[in-house]
Amino acid sequence: MKSWFGVLGRACLEFLLILSLAALVSGAASSLAATNPRGGLLLAFALAALPRLLPLAAAAAIFLAMFSFEHRVASRAAGWLGLLLLGIILLSAGLAPRLLPGLQRLLPEAPTSFEAALQPPGVGVDRDGLLLWYRQPGDGGDAVLVDFREPYPRLSHQAGILLDAAKLTIRAGGSSYGAAAARLRAEPLFPEAALLPGPPIWERYAELGALPLPASLALLGGFVLLATGFRFLTRLSRWPLANALFAVSGFLAFLALDAAFASPALAALAAALLPRSGGAMPALLVPAAAEGLLGLLLGAADLAIRTRERPSRG
């Protein structure tokens, strides 16, 4: 029992660490949209991202805890229950703001727009082949345009320019040129999300607040059950290192499967099937129930397979 609680406590700490890191990474990615990102902006975005990243971090903690339970706890049923409990504990934290409305006000809202700025003077900025450089000494100012898209000669010089900070343009020689400060772009963190058959969990989790509490709990239950169902990965092969690496891809497979259960196609299928069930179940809960059922089946199969080893308590 001591080991069981030990694994649970350690998993909670890992969850906090993962959640913090994920929030900071998300905050950095979001704040990069600003012309001049700073630490404060990053933190504001990170705090705002915390709630929606909660299920992702919880799932990661569950996957990590699988190996600990497998090793530290002799009874696989107890281990499975531990994972289930862990998921419920972690995800219920996401429902806390609903139960305690005061908590909601503590979380800052992410900025929705950034103060746009003109490109700095004295810096040549190339926009798809049209390079613009300007300076504004005192009242006047001049600009140099080099249109690399056109044949030589390409350089033109315009005096008496007008800067429009609202439209982020520079008017020179009767024409207007875009002069918004360029932003650094980073590679998307999870471009594969576009390939998922449905919305990923971090997109759906924010919508849970609008649902009735039982429906929210049912959706989260399906999610946790499916995550714990992947426990079989810890014994997929007879090489623990291989199992650990397989769990990395298994985690992605779990996210894809979870998104598939939230796909519009499945929702349409559920809506089509519901009239036959006599309206006993809201359409929203059909995919959640299916997800949970699949998790239970995977978990049951894992428990039913013969034990091939006696866990070491090293």
Partner: peptide
């Protein structure tokens, strides 16, 4: 992380 070792042949 605690050591996690796979089955030894004699424990199967």
């Amino acid at each position: 992380a605690r050591a996690d070792r796979g089955p030894a042949p004699d424990e199967e």
